[in-house]
Design a protein around this nucleic acid. Structure first.
Lengths: 196, 196
DNA sequence: ATAACTCGTTCACTTAAGTTAAGAAATGAA
DNA sequence: TTCATTTCTTAACTTAAGTGAACGAGTTAT
């Protein structure tokens, strides 16, 4: 049975190899955190220096626009989120909350700077991660722009089928860029096509 | 009158300060490149290690889907593009071409690795740039998801009014996620509203 | 147990985007 | 210049998403 630490180091080993010293330096930071379903990690208007890495569970980001929640992203196992407000050093424009009981790595940007100066290798990890995420997100954005809500939904079934199970429909809807009623209708339409 | 080199170093100075040695190391790479309007920098299916930084002019990325061009991004002065295929080391899914006579910095990922090992400071620049771009793109994506084509167009007028002047309508249309006819209609609609 | 909510679905109606086609205006090439 | 091509707009029609309302199923709180 893998511990959370094993999971973390397995992940990092995809990018660089770490010495025991470096591993201990990471562990000494005490960054693992367990949070209950429903917990809000970041609120609109708040300032924060925390980044999140999901080891187990699921978190989502959402805006409140005209007193309506607009969910824009889900982060599940092995996915990382650095809210834009951490980079821009301005109050957050959105909320981050847990939609399942979740185990996270929470890293503070000050702490990161410190470990970066001690172990330059971490700068390399972070750079690679950021570049990889940027490339991935570019592709996601391009797919979103070039497809219809129905295609996006079918695409989601292929790429992240787990989300359909673990996320409420109305949150999925805004993630797909439509209203919950439209997602219902769109699903009924697809079902009809497959039958007829 | 600013030279292209001045423009580059002014930009970098926003992130870190460079010694003359470091500046010379950059210049010795011979990275400046002038390209004519219409030049294709990257084709679908091609492999490449080149990243682009626009000093003057405008480049766009587009997919060809069902023999139709789908423009997904424009990069203008002081904006950088590292195509996903450079990160993933797979053939490119899209085209990159110049829509104006353009002056670029073209940097090769091998070359970057070399200069990174000589001057660790560059790793820091790249990391900051990547993180900043990631944050910026997250916000762009969120705005796209949470708004209608009309809102996106109005948003574009606010945020990148220059694009309306320098980019053909049909390229703007797919950038906004609609067909050219819909963009025409949508613009007529907005005009009508403003007249009353 | 019941009342109040939330969630997902459905329906009827409105609004806007996709589609097909046509024509005017601008651009480029011979 | 002239011819051909591309670009932009408009229009009529189709399709799908937004809106407001209603309903039942499942939760939560009292």
């Amino acid at each position: 049975m893998k511990t959370m630490q094993d999971i973390l180091f397995d992940f990092i080993s995809k990018y660089v190899s770490l010495t025991d010293d470096e591993k201990n330096a990471i562990l000494s930071l005490d960054i693992f955190r367990s949070v209950k379903k429903g917990t809000t990690l970041l609120k609109e208007g708040q300032k924060s220096k925390d980044s999140y890495f999901v080891l187990k569970g699921c978190i989502r980001t959402y805006y409140v626009i005209d007193s309506e929640e607009k969910t824009t992203a889900f982060y599940t196992e092995m996915e990382a989120l650095t809210p834009p407000c951490v980079i821009s050093k301005t109050p957050s424009e959105y909320y981050v909350s847990c939609i399942e009981d979740t185990i996270l790595i929470v890293s503070n940007s000050d702490m990161e700077a410190e470990i970066n100066s001690k172990f330059p290798k971490f700068e390399t990890i972070c750079k690679m991660l950021a570049e990889e995420l940027l490339a991935k997100q570019q592709i996601d954005f391009d797919e979103f722009k070039t497809s219809s809500p129905e295609q996006r939904y079918l695409n989601l079934i292929q790429k992240r089928p787990d989300l359909l199970q673990r996320v409420p429909q109305h949150q999925l809807a805004s993630y797909l860029g439509v209203k919950p009623q439209s997602l219902s209708r769109l699903r009924a339409r697809i079902l009809g096509k497959n039958k007829g």
